[in-house]
Write a protein that binds this DNA or RNA. Sequence first.
DNA 1: TCTGACCTGCGA
DNA 2: TCGCAGGTCAGA
Length: 268
Amino acid sequence: MPELPEVETIARQLKKHYLGKVITEVKVKPARIFINCKPEEFSHLLVNKKLKGIDRYGKFMIWKVDGLFPVFHLGMSGIFIQQKKKTMYPKHIHVSFKFEDNSRLFFQDVRKFGKIFLYKRRPKFIDLGPDPLAENFTLINFRKLLNLSGVGIKSFLMDQHRIAGIGNIYANETLYLAGINPFRPAKSIKPREAEKLYQAIRYILEEAISHFGTTYTAYQTVEGNNGENQNFLKVYQKENELCERCGGKIIKVLINNRSTFYCKKCQK
DNA sequence: TCTGACCTGCGA
DNA sequence: TCGCAGGTCAGA
């Protein structure tokens, strides 16, 4: 599921509702999604701690909780949902947080591809590339990364070790906006095209955040609403529709086993 | 660099 | 019943 815009949307809403509150209870369901700590340890260490900060790096969400840093990766189907009624207890809940005001927050993950970590210091994510909305993601750096790469441009955009935060939907949309064919080798991208692509990455992600993310199947905001960005997509899931820009047909192919949508006519 | 496995639910 | 889904990683 969630790519950078969805994680950012969730982080903003969590801040709005829970920042500054003390966690009074943490219930966990033992599952392989706990990576570097035991579920019961996660639960025990977070009780009676205040949620002091929430931020994001790529698709990772980092909480700051009185000297501890729980980190969440939402995988394909992870979401955070507020409990709206006391009787509301959805399926596939792996963590349930209760706060000092008796409000509850659930971490739900149907497919269990999500990951939960617990650190004593804020992780530096040295394995990941730059976050595309951060200051250190500059055009100069982006061009360098492109030149060093031996893969196709779509795989390049989705490789978290190169750029952290772009997944399949936004890789498709970014390449469409920049007018670049997804089969092109990353190295073949010319300086002018690199600039267009760089701007497209930021534009597509920022627009998606302003639309609260893209709901294609499972994704919902913390408040339980669908995102709205699916109404603004140009190619993703638009197979056989006509390209808004040139009237060409949008086609679907597989690249690295991931559905890829593009306009053969205007994406060169 | 690429493929398959990890999971579950949904729609064709 | 089968294929597919927004991600990631080990192993070939």
